[in-house]
Design a protein around this nucleic acid. Sequence first.
DNA 1: CCAATAAGTGTTTTT
DNA 2: CACTTATTGG
Length: 726
Amino acid sequence: MHYSIPYEKDLNQSQLNAVQYHHSPLLVLAGAGSGKTRVITYKIAYLINECGFDPESILAVTFTNKASNEMKIRVMSLLGEEVDVWIKTFHSTAAKLLRVYGSYFGIKQGFSIIDQHDQHTVVRDIIKKMNIDTESHKPEKYVYLIERAKDNLLDPEEARAAEFSTDPLFYDIFHKYASILKGDNLFDFGDLIYNVVRILRENKEALTLLKRRFRYILVDEFQDTNHSQYILVKLLALPEGEVCVVGDDDQSIYGFRGAKVENILNFQADYKGTKVIKLEENYRSFQTILSASSSLINRNTGRLGKTLYTRKGKGEKLCFFHASTDRNEAIFIASEIQELIFRNGYSFSDMAIFYRMNAQSRSFESILSQLRIPYIIVGGLRFYEREEIKDILSYIRLVINPMDEISLRRVMAKPPRGIGTKTVDTLIQCTIRGGVPFYDFKNCSEISSSRSKKLSNFTALIMELSEEMNKTYPPDILRKIYDETGYVEWLKEQNKEEKLANLDELYNAVEEFSRRNPSSPISEFLEEVSLNQAAGDEEFQNNRVCLITLHNAKGLEFPVVFIAGMEEGIFPHFLSGGHKDDIEEERRLCYVGMTRAMEKLYLTAAKLRRLYGRNIERSISTFIHELPEDLLLYKEEKHLENKSVSYYSSEARNQIKRGGDKSYRRTDSFVESDIEKGTRIIHKQFGKGKVLELEKGIAVIKFDDGKIMKFMLQYTPIRREETDED
DNA sequence: CCAATAAGTGTTTTT
DNA sequence: CACTTATTGG
């Protein structure tokens, strides 16, 4: 009847055990590259196909949208059809639960979700109103404390009782913050989880309802759960214990947002009869990469401990390059990318550059675009965080939720309407704070008639839009907002071409959304983008080098990885403090980065780095010194200068001097590749083979399946077959 | 009271 | 470099 899945063939023994076991709670300790996602996806398929679970009764939670999307696709391809399993992030699970079941349990519908920037704005306003200076009392500090309090399921009063912070002002600020969000019907990320937990704890009926619905729960990246997420899972999963969590304590990198590695350790204590399965075979990396990263992570204390091994062969040494400046670091990486493309047959999408801070991407952007190397920045200055995009989204939010003062403030002077902060303050005071929508201001005596007239124009516009909100096709609503608020006109006056282009892109995104979900209102689009801050999902489709932060790189893999900025103060970052725990988290981050690499791993540093406008001398990261010397190949700029091959000194540099060559053409130096007559090669598409003839850059290759083909070497994705010589 | 401009400052990682 | 705050002209 259903697809028969060859579990035994596709999985190794430990993976198979993890997939088939479901007699008690299951903890899978999955080392880097050990097939963690494979286990979860096959397990979901197994539960449905072999154990008779209704797809709707399975809940699989991840941390990122990227992970959940990938998981959905893989489950779908295993089962051969789309299934109704909930595969979602923690936050979108919570949001969906609050939307679907919330109204039964006292959650007001139509809430919007705010991001950290909005949180910051609210807190800054509170501090200002309290007449405290924002120098010694930094808003970001309070945002951080509020988030941590919510992670720990504390409301302002409970936080005070628990002496959560030594700063007495905190409780007051937290209290004001909470009441503003409540009054505006806004939720921050922490509220989503917090409120679900609160309902489940206080309301037996809700708990029964959800427990009846979700019979089996899977959690990915369990080491990244914070307290509230841990409790949420526990509420749903106990006492039955139909649960499987997968994680790796060595890859815990989100301590700064409340994640607790201890949750992995506590798991066995909280869930009676837990079965532990370790996945220790690494399918991703060569031995050198694995050895180097293992010896780094071995320096951390309090680990559960795993012994990863690989059967992929030895591999080359890692390369450490010490550049004189950050610019030269970028040039080195760029030229190395060209080499790997032309000589080894890698494609751009095989390679990634990792860095600790988003600000580091700039130097790569400029060099790569000068050399016409295609790249994509993942994360970074995200699309939905751009000013113009947030402005338009705020208009939509305001139309949906007239109590949303954050959006109101944001949008009021864009374009300028003769209404400033003073007037907005009084307006909010006598409307939203009194529990009525912002457009009910007729009883406000404090607002002068001249302002009142201007306000009326604005409120009439928003009310008109809200009339149409539910009956109009979402892209048309967007168009109306563009035109009738005067926003697009305003941008045109200022010749903000890029912003206008972004608004076109936003329009396309809404159109695309409406095509996917024909009957969904625009509010659902809003939900989607609030919880999925990432850019479009065609990120990896084109052939581009991936530029990404180390944090975002978790869960990904690339044949070639460059980790840039291996310098004290940057990585480990100086703000991460000198404390042991912080350094260990940075070390885990380095471990995560290194273990993304399948074949080649480069680590680079600069002696002089320009950052935030000033040049600073930097020394090499301790993490480099912590790697075994015999696994590292040191390269310095001066070594390269002497090289006769046009390496980075002439070829790449000349191009940069020319400002990039549009008709970029390989030069002879690249023809001297390491491929010659007789070389065994791997072709990206056709697999392994041997070079029979090689003349004028054209190779005749006989593949192992007998096929003989001709290729232009320079355009062919082939590279030497790595021989694991001893 | 609003809006545009000039000076000043402090710098991570993300759902 | 980007973002916040202070100042000034309207």
